[in-house]
Design a protein around this nucleic acid. Structure first.
Lengths: 138, 138
DNA sequence: GTAAGATATGCACATATGCTCATATATTGA
DNA sequence: TCAATATATGAGCATATGTGCATATCTTAC
């Protein structure tokens, strides 16, 4: 059983994990203890669930276009509809999902509903996602 | 037609978008020109697609657990299987997807296949996602 | 109040996706 | 070569999801 080599020290307090060398004695008590120890430092299931909710919100081209268009500032529904080239219904449906998940906020302005990004975590995520997509030939 | 207010200047070169004030004359030629202009600075469809591929890779609890477990360093399949508490088949299927999308890399080490994160964009994304999930009561 | 514009939403359907089961492949040691 | 361990993969199924259609709600102007 050896100390793990770390590649990204300050991430999520995942770096303190200790794991044995291989799979041979998975059923042994100590080994199981280690594995449980490792599992314990993973984000809990509730956090995992919330994070997947965020990423799945970003995992659709319509929603990603909507969010990208909002990086420049707030827009009303029909503007997003035109910029993103999708139907009004699709935009509204997706905006509801995005609002439910806390990625955008809205306000009324007369007949229009104006949307904006909820915080800049969202634009950070999109920016890094684009970097990753562009940097590798694939 | 007014200049847009910016909230995040250096993001994706989306900040130079000019958009009219409302939805009233969407069908007029000038208005359409503006909208097309705005659309042009959004990431192209190919980039949008690649980015959604990345985010959808992060948008599943099994894959997110796998990737989180790899933040601490490389692991073999059966270790991830134990840490993430999923079947061997499920882990392998998801690892294939993650490798196909360039989020992890693998190498053989005897009988084992050892996986690691492809680059630190991945851990950055996970970290920001967790921050976002934790910071808001929801 | 009524009409028109803008947005929201319920429903149904087609597609995508994640899992299990069974099996194939790969690697090591005898 | 054969057995054991570790990993990979194809098929099928159950569920999740994105969209269009129709319609409801909301706001302003008359």
């Amino acid at each position: 059983m050896i100390n793990r080599r770390f590649s990204d020290g300050d991430s999520v307090a995942l770096a303190d994990v200790l794991v044995g060398d291989c799979c041979e004695d998975v059923s042994s008590p100590e080994r199981l203890g280690d594995i449980i120890g490792a599992e314990a430092v993973l984000p809990g299931d509730d956090v995992i669930y919330k994070v997947t909710e965020i990423f799945s919100a970003l995992a659709d081209s319509t929603r990603l276009k909507i969010l990208s268009s909002l990086i420049g500032g707030e827009l009303c529904v029909c503007e997003m509809q035109e910029v993103c080239d999708v139907s009004q219904s699709a935009v509204s449906h997706q905006l509801r999902l995005l609002r439910d998940r806390g990625l955008v906020r809205s306000r009324r302005d007369g007949q229009r509903s104006v949307y904006r990004l909820a915080d800049d975590h969202v634009s950070q995520l999109i920016r890094i996602g684009i970097e990753h997509a562009v940097e590798e030939g694939r």
